[in-house]
């Protein structure tokens, strides 16, 4: 089943990238996906049952909307800091504790944090994320934990766990 899931993902990706419904193209895609699935199937550690739950895809869509909105806000914020003559920045590395358990969810969380302007994930050690923040607005760990990962975490928990 794990091999089949990987096969389906690879084949869909192939069809999206080539976007050609000719029979020869489909056959090449099937063969390529089959080889990939056979070679890398044993490395495919994600729980395959989660891929067949449609509810997770709905949460994923909501997550994308929330993420884009956060990104736009943060982008304007950073653009303002860069362009203003005084440069109001207060950089620092803060420690944030996450409740997510699976490694894939953590990867997506760390990537989301890095992708949001103003914050970069420096390292992940056990449950702690170390985040370089361009404007450390408060030193209370509860407040900045909520500010940085609060919204993402709830949704990611629904999607991946």
């Amino acid at each position: 089943m794990r091999y089949l899931t990987l096969f389906i993902i690879m084949f869909l990706l192939w069809m999206l990238i080539t976007l050609n419904l000719a029979l020869s193209n489909i056959i090449v895609g099937l063969v390529a996906a089959l080889i990939t699935a056979l070679v890398f199937g044993s490395q495919f550690k994600l729980n395959w049952k989660k891929f067949y739950n449609p509810l997770r895809y709905i949460w994923l869509l909501i997550y994308i909307i929330v993420f884009v909105w956060e990104c736009i806000k943060a982008n304007f914020d950073v653009a303002f800091r860069v362009l203003s003559p005084k440069m109001p920045i207060k950089p620092g590395i803060v420690k944030v504790r996450t409740k997510l358990k699976t490694s894939f969810a953590r990867v997506i969380l760390a990537n989301s944090i890095t992708m949001t302007p103003g914050t970069i994930t420096v390292d992940v050690i056990d449950d702690d994320l170390f985040i370089h923040w361009i404007y450390v607005s408060s030193k209370d760990s509860k407040i900045y934990t909520k500010k940085i990962i609060g919204r993402f975490e709830k949704l990611l928990k629904r999607i991946f766990e």
Binding site: P91, G92, I93, V94, K95, D123, D128, K139
Partner: peptide, 14 residues
Amino acid sequence: KLWDKSVIDDYKKV
């Protein structure tokens, strides 16, 4: 090194 005016550095200890 971080910038002189950096406020906080939790990563250093680790």
